[in-house]
Computed example of a mutant assay.
Amino acid sequence: MNMKAFSTLAGLSSYTLRYYEKVGLLNNIQRNSSGHRVYTAKDLEWINFVKRLKDTGMALTKIQQYAQLRTLGPGTVLDRQQLLECHKDQLQAHIELQKNHLLALENKISLYKANKVS
Results as ranks from 00 to 15, higher is better:
78 L>I: 08
58 M>S: 05
79 D>Y: 00
64 Q>C: 03
92 Q>T: 06
77 V>W: 02
64 Q>G: 09
92 Q>M: 11
65 Q>L: 11
95 I>Y: 14
97 L>M: 11
68 Q>G: 06
85 E>C: 01
96 E>Y: 12
66 Y>M: 09
81 Q>M: 11
99 K>A: 12
77 V>S: 00
60 L>W: 03
80 R>F: 07
87 H>L: 14
89 D>G: 07
78 L>G: 05
90 Q>T: 00
74 P>S: 15
84 L>R: 01
80 R>P: 03
98 Q>T: 11
99 K>M: 14
70 R>H: 04
73 G>E: 08
72 L>Q: 15
62 K>H: 13
71 T>M: 13
78 L>A: 14
64 Q>H: 09
91 L>A: 06
86 C>K: 04
96 E>W: 04
58 M>K: 03
74 P>N: 15
92 Q>R: 06
89 D>H: 01
72 L>W: 10
94 H>S: 11
77 V>K: 01
97 L>K: 07
95 I>R: 03
84 L>S: 00
98 Q>A: 12
86 C>P: 01
77 V>E: 00
95 I>E: 15
57 G>A: 04
84 L>V: 00
62 K>L: 13
95 I>N: 14
57 G>C: 07
78 L>V: 06
58 M>T: 01
96 E>Q: 09
76 T>L: 11
99 K>P: 06
59 A>I: 00
75 G>C: 04
84 L>E: 04
60 L>G: 05
84 L>D: 05
60 L>I: 09
81 Q>G: 08
69 L>N: 05
84 L>P: 05
100 N>E: 15
76 T>I: 09
70 R>I: 00
67 A>N: 07
73 G>Q: 06
60 L>P: 05
65 Q>K: 04
83 L>M: 05
59 A>Q: 04
60 L>S: 00
85 E>D: 07
90 Q>M: 05
77 V>M: 03
86 C>Y: 05
77 V>D: 02
87 H>Q: 14
94 H>R: 15
65 Q>R: 06
82 Q>Y: 09
59 A>W: 10
72 L>Y: 14
98 Q>I: 15
57 G>W: 12
59 A>E: 15
93 A>V: 01
69 L>K: 02
94 H>E: 11
79 D>P: 15
68 Q>N: 10
67 A>D: 01
83 L>R: 00
57 G>V: 02
95 I>S: 09
91 L>Y: 08
74 P>A: 14
70 R>T: 00
87 H>G: 05
78 L>C: 10
90 Q>I: 01
70 R>V: 00
78 L>M: 11
84 L>A: 02
99 K>N: 13
61 T>Y: 07
95 I>G: 11
79 D>F: 02
76 T>P: 08
81 Q>I: 08
76 T>C: 06
89 D>S: 11
88 K>A: 01
96 E>R: 08
90 Q>E: 15
100 N>M: 14
82 Q>S: 15
74 P>C: 12
88 K>D: 03
93 A>F: 02
90 Q>H: 01
84 L>Y: 00
81 Q>S: 08
67 A>G: 00
74 P>L: 15
66 Y>P: 02
71 T>E: 13
87 H>E: 04
76 T>H: 09
87 H>A: 07
77 V>A: 03
70 R>D: 06
